[in-house]
Design a protein around this nucleic acid. Structure first.
Lengths: 208, 208
DNA sequence: GTCTATAAATGGATAGAC
DNA sequence: GTCTATCCATTTATAGAC
């Protein structure tokens, strides 16, 4: 028994958007792909933007979960690795949003506001984590260094897949691990020598 | 006396692309803007991609110049600041390329190759500069840290304007200075204390 | 060199039958 | 819910007059 058509439209749209870029996928393409009529598609969604917004809502829910600091205790380097992995997996699954981020967010005020809000939450999370490491005494940086480093982490995470694609990387899945590595290296120089070595070890483990 | 029509088309295209994004500017828009006919535009250029390629060629020439290490002597922090400024100014003037980088480079193999080549040159340049600082004894990092930091610098520089736009910054011109600052902070933790303080001072000077 | 006119294709979206 | 048919707007691109 086939699922809800509405749901199949969302699923097919996500796959097509991710594969070719949202700009290069028309509502006709989506209907073709599902072997339904364009009219049917418009019965379930007001327009293309409606589809995008529904997908974005799912993305936002998942990203919010990934950004919520899970632990009561102070974070360890392994915690950070895990959280980065969750964030990157989410970005990967909704990579069409990131691929044409400026264009999409310039066309849709609502999405821009929500994405901006996600960035803000992510920034606060990163700052929180680094403060936690500082409290543990394994991280040495002043408030301004932490703030600016959080910003750099966001830029890397937000655009890593794009960078990877433009450089011509083919095994895009592997580039997630590289993305994690690049962020880890961003915070490494602030670590105490012991933990810096530990991180180098961790990094070697999952990079190839 | 008006310049060459061909030249005016390139100039108007660049301005429109930068303002609204290349995707949202048709050949008709360009012709309208110049108050010439679409037919006239197609007399001077084979198609829209032709216009984009001509603009990209100018961009590449200018970026190559900005990336060429100017000094015989070992680089200082001020040299780096100056070079970053040249690079960001170039990115700013051709920001339409960066705005829709993935889409443009996925549609045009030639541009993708050339952009990839620019990234490679930039990476080598950044590594060269950091090695120079290390030779001067004011920078302490191993080869792998330098390589990965160079990559992070490229990602920040490449996507800083996009990040700034999505965050909702309005004074986009000011964001160039912030972009320079973010890159500077990336290399700061590897500096000796004296130079780190000097950089903090430099940074304060041109950030507001 | 520049214009007018227009072809050809595509995309978003709707009306109305079933 | 789903389909067929169709409309309207836009875009790229060309032909041919001036």
């Amino acid at each position: 028994m086939a699922r809800d058509t509405r749901d199949r439209i969302l699923e097919a749209s996500l796959a097509l958007f991710n594969a070719r870029g949202e700009l290069n996928v028309s509502t006709n393409h989506i209907a073709d792909d599902l072997e339904i009529s364009p009219g049917n598609l418009y019965y379930h969604f007001r327009n293309k933007d409606d589809i995008i917004e529904q997908l974005f809502a799912r993305f936002e829910l998942r990203m919010d979960k990934a950004l919520t600091a899970p632990a009561e205790r102070l974070p360890t380097l392994e915690d950070i690795w895990l959280q980065l992995h969750l964030v990157y997996e989410c970005i990967w699954d909704y990579r069409f949003i990131y691929r044409d981020l400026v264009d999409i967010s310039s066309r849709n005020r609502k999405l821009r506001m929500h994405f901006s809000r996600i960035l803000k939450r992510a920034s606060e999370g990163a700052i929180e984590v680094m403060r936690g490491l500082a409290t543990s005494g394994i991280f040495r940086a002043n408030a301004e260094e932490i703030r600016a480093t959080a910003t750099n982490i966001l830029v890397i995470a937000t655009f890593w897949l794009n960078f990877s694609a433009v450089r011509g990387e083919h095994d895009e899945r592997e580039s997630i691990n590289q993305g994690i590595y690049q962020v880890m290296l961003l915070i490494a120089p602030f670590l105490r020598d012991t933990e810096r070595a530990q991180l180098t070890h961790l990094a070697a483990a999952y990079l190839r």
